[in-house]
């Protein structure tokens, strides 16, 4: 693969304040095509993105992060991209790490590369409940698959052609990050974590509330356990 076709997928829900900055930073760091998936925003996210001269796919109504990201994968699959990278529209993910995410797929044939906050000590600070959640999911993942991933919920990730095809046909609708890792390990895919710095979100606010966190924890745990009952084997 001399000149791989790379698509950067930016899911965005009401991110009119941060989306333009994210797009410019991605453009400044790579030559990849950019697709903004506007997840039924009620603000001017789509218009702002269009003004930046990128492709915008606008969902008629809000689907949640999983449905939005999958739209990007369906697009990537239909347009024969070799690699797809997810970058959040809220500006948490630093696009200067894009190369680090893509390189292991090209050079070492990894199926998926996750930009991780915890592989090395970084300046990223998070709440206690979030860290407890991280450790719990990491442990549950290890218990279920025997593999270690530290930052299971990072949405900063790159995948190869094979995974693009798989995601375009099957992707969890809500809270997909951890779920997807278990699915891929069960399908004998290879996943690498690379250290990245994450920033404070640039605009908008987090969708996580305490009650939602508990729902999240239970729902994802159930999804992971159910995955174990699904069939194994190669993609």
């Amino acid at each position: 693969m001399i000149d791989p076709k790379v698509l950067v997928i930016i899911p965005a829900f009401n991110e009119e304040k941060s989306i333009a900055g994210v797009i410019r930073e991605v453009k400044g760091n790579c030559k990849a095509d950019i697709l903004v998936v506007d997840d039924g925003s009620t603000d001017s996210t789509a218009q702002v993105a269009l003004k930046e001269g990128v492709k915008v796919v606008s969902l008629p109504f809000n689907l949640g992060i999983g449905g939005a990201v999958q739209t990007g994968y369906i697009y990537a699959n239909e347009n024969n991209y070799d690699i797809a990278v997810q970058v959040d529209g809220d500006g948490q993910h630093d696009p200067s790490y894009l190369d680090e995410l893509v390189a292991p797929i090209l050079n070492e044939k990894y199926d998926m590369v996750i930009g991780s906050r915890y592989v090395q000590e970084t300046s990223y600070k998070s709440t206690l409940s979030r860290r407890v959640g991280m450790v719990f999911f990491s442990w549950l993942l290890y218990f279920l698959t025997g593999k270690r991933i530290k930052d299971t919920t990072s949405g900063f990730r790159a995948v190869n052609r094979k995974i693009i095809r798989y995601f375009s046909s099957s992707y969890p609708t809500d809270y997909p990050e951890v779920d997807v890792i278990v699915r891929l390990f069960r399908k004998n895919c290879t996943i690498l974590e690379v250290p990245v710095e994450m920033k404070e979100r640039q605009g908008g606010k987090s969708s996580i509330t305490p009650l939602k966190s508990i729902y999240y924890l239970i729902k994802v745990s159930l999804a992971l356990l159910i995955n174990i009952l699904r069939s194994r084997g190669a993609l």
Partner: peptide
């Protein structure tokens, strides 16, 4: 419905 939503968005683009 999710799939239709996604396909419509892509088609519009």
């Amino acid at each position: 419905i999710t799939r239709l939503n996604q396909e419509i968005a892509i088609l519009k683009e």
